[in-house]
C-alpha cells in the first residue's frame, strides 16, 4: 500500500515538473494555458490520490474520514481547474491577445 502511494505521489510530482517547464518555456499565453490546464489537474489528482492512500495505511475510522476529505478536494479540483482555465483563456481572448504561430519567427 505504501509503495503504491509513493508511486502515485512521485508520478504527480513529475507531472508538476512538466507543468512548470511548460509554463516557463512556451511562447504565448494560449500554449501556457495548455500546460496549466492539463498538467496541473492530473498532477494534483495523482498526488492527492497518493496522499489519501498513504493516510489509510494504519487503518482507523478517523483516517478514512480524512481520506474521504482528501478525495473531496480531488473531485473539487477536477471540476474547478478546467473551469478556471476556461475563464482565464476566455478573458485573454476577449482582451484580444493574438495567438503566437510558427510563422512569426524568422
Amino acid at each position: 500500500m505504501n509503495a503504491l502511494a509513493g508511486t502515485f505521489v512521485v508520478l504527480g510530482f513529475l507531472f508538476f515538473i512538466g507543468t512548470t517547464l511548460g509554463l516557463l518555456r512556451f511562447p504565448d499565453f494560449y500554449s501556457r494555458m495548455h500546460a496549466s490546464g492539463k498538467g496541473d489537474t492530473i498532477g494534483a489528482i495523482f498526488m492527492l490520490l497518493g496522499l489519501a492512500l498513504h493516510n489509510l495505511s494504519p487503518f482507523s475510522w478517523s483516517g478514512v474520514f480524512v481520506s474521504l476529505k482528501i478525495v473531496l478536494i480531488l473531485i473539487f479540483l477536477f471540476l474547478a481547474n478546467p473551469t478556471a482555465t476556461h475563464a482565464i483563456i476566455d478573458a485573454g481572448y476577449e482582451t484580444g491577445v493574438k495567438p503566437w504561430t510558427r510563422e512569426d519567427t524568422p
Binding site: 515538473i17 512538466g18 518555456r25 511562447p27 494560449y30 495548455h34 500546460a35 492539463k38 504561430t101
Partner: peptide
C-alpha cells in the same frame, strides 16, 4: 504537453486556432 515542454527547441509546437 510535458513531452513537448521537454523538447530542446520545441519543433513540433505549431499552435493555431
Amino acid at each position: 504537453v510535458a513531452l513537448i515542454a521537454l523538447e530542446p527547441n520545441m519543433a513540433t509546437l505549431e499552435p493555431r486556432l
